[in-house]
Design a binder for these strands. Structure first.
Length: 463
DNA sequence: TTTTGAGTTGTTCGA
DNA sequence: GTCGAACAACTCAAA
């Protein structure tokens, strides 16, 4: 038995892995190889094109069958169809399996046979199905080939960034199966019981941080399901409680996003609701850059964007706040935000990135209504009331009292002087006035609805 | 068949 | 200070 990873970013269409993803991939592959070495096995690493690589390898080692886990990202799924055809034509047995979802996307549909576009009903349907298949145990031993085929070294893939900005990322994460299992165990034991309350506070480490592990297949949702069930049994948590838990429903949202991408493959670049096609997004390079580097003048937004840059990850709640800010306050297209997240997130996942950005922009499935505009000051004061999160990522504001930490531009001059903050030089002046920006956003969305109505198309998401 | 109600994550305004 | 209404349009299942 031979394990092979083929690096073929050009086969991912418009979405080759970004820098943060490649960093994770490097360490995940290293971890996988290390675990194979315990069986005196090893990971064979090849470069695409995938079908050529696999045909060559099969010939070299005399393989009779090729197996892989299904992916549903549009470009990769199309690639896999071609690979399957070519391998089959060459006389190889080819089988693929569901390794990344609780249910195959075509098995969940509403009464008229169409995909759900509302999460609640989708998830009720998922939960009403028989429990997902139990994950198989890892093999106790492997049958190794008589001779190992040629393989690239991991470093030859050039996945690590040229500049060593990944230093901070490494401190925050342990890519690989062991890291994934530790993250889940740690979450279940320490955070599961209080998840509903604590998860919204970015200063508390109360979320599972499983997303990159799930994306790279280091742990599967079926393993999460089973671990949660076993944890519940050990702790006398009734089945009804854990099955309807907020945490499991987050796994459900992941599932929902992957099913939607399967059914609506155009959504990474086009709004699910066609009425949003003509929305007059602004192209303001200066504002976009300020958002990207965390220099908007709104502390909770800047803290989030800097956390993203420094660690390849951002707290879920803060993702909503910064997304709302880009889309509603700056009126910059959600696709710009999706691009930036794609390149900077270690958990960048096409399905989830797409669903969630469209959700924030209001143009997606079960989306936030257009009038739901996050107020960055209020969100900061509610969820980071002592300013710990802001002080961690915006240290130049560190000496400001709690009272002013989320509204530094309103602080009295003597307070600013004492805190050694000069607004406009030490920390930016807000690049927009939220109250004005909110009014403009509401007006722009209202105009879009009028235009859509007069064009007789509505903003229906029907396709 | 038609109607009704509810739907991840919010904010503002006026009583 | 608190509280409810309003801020749309559409999906989907239950009644």
């Amino acid at each position: 038995m031979l394990f092979v990873y083929i690096y073929a970013p050009e086969e991912a269409g418009d979405w080759p892995p970004g820098s943060a993803s490649r960093w994770w991939l490097h360490h995940s592959l290293a971890s996988f190889d290390a675990s194979l070495r315990k069986f005196s096995s090893r990971l064979t690493i090849l470069r695409g094109p995938s079908s050529e690589a696999l045909l060559g390898l099969a010939k070299a080692v005399g393989a009779g069958a090729v197996y892989w886990s299904d992916l549903h990202e549009p470009a990769l799924a199309a690639r896999d169809v071609l690979v399957r055809e070519r391998l089959t034509a060459a006389g190889l047995v080819v089988e693929s399996f569901n390794g990344s979802l609780l249910h195959e996307p075509w098995t969940i549909s509403n009464q008229s046979g169409k995909p759900y576009q509302i999460f609640t009903m989708f998830w009720i349907q998922c939960l009403s199905k028989p429990a997902p298949q139990e994950p198989l145990a890892a093999p106790a031993k492997l049958r190794n080939p008589e001779a190992w085929p040629d393989s690239l070294s991991l470093n030859e893939l050039g996945l690590l960034p040229k500049i060593n900005w990944a230093g901070n990322i490494g401190e925050a994460w342990s890519p690989g199966e062991d890291g994934a299992r530790d993250a889940l165990d740690n979450f279940l034991n320490n955070s599961f019981s209080n998840y509903v309350v604590a998860r919204d506070y970015p200063g508390r480490n109360a979320t599972s941080r499983l997303s990159p592990h799930l994306h790279f297949g280091e742990i599967s949702p079926r393993q999460v399901w089973r671990s949660l069930r076993l944890f519940a049994e050990r702790n006398d948590i009734p089945e009804e409680t854990w099955r309807s838990s907020q945490f499991l429903s987050e796994i459900g949202w992941r599932e929902f996003s992957h099913h939607l991408l399967y059914h609506f493959p155009q959504t990474p670049h086009a709004p699910l609701r066609p009425g949003y096609n003509e929305f007059p997004w602004r192209r303001d390079k200066g504002h976009l850059t300020a958002w990207q580097v965390g220099a908007t003048g709104y502390p909770i937004v800047d803290a989030g964007m800097r956390q993203l840059w420094a660690t390849g990850w951002m707290h879920n709640r803060v993702r909503m706040i910064v997304a709302s800010f880009l889309v509603k306050d700056l009126l910059i297209s959600w696709t710009e935000g999706a691009r930036w997240f794609w390149d900077t997130l270690v958990d960048a996942d096409l399905a989830q990135n797409t669903l969630n950005w469209q959700w924030a922009a209001g143009c997606g499935a079960d989306a936030a209504p257009y009038f739901r505009v996050f107020n960055p000051t209020l969100q900061g004061e509610k969820l980071d009331c002592e300013g710990n999160y802001v002080r961690l990522w915006c240290p130049e504001l560190g000496k400001l009292p709690d009272r002013w930490i989320h509204i530094p531009w309103e602080a009295p001059p003597e307070v600013l002087a004492r805190a050694e903050v000069r607004i406009g030089s030490d920390y930016p002046t807000p690049i927009v006035d939220h109250a004005v920006a909110r009014a403009e956003a509401l007006a722009a969305f209202a105009q879009m609805r009028r235009d859509a109505k007069s064009a007789g198309m509505g903003i229906s998401s029907q396709i």
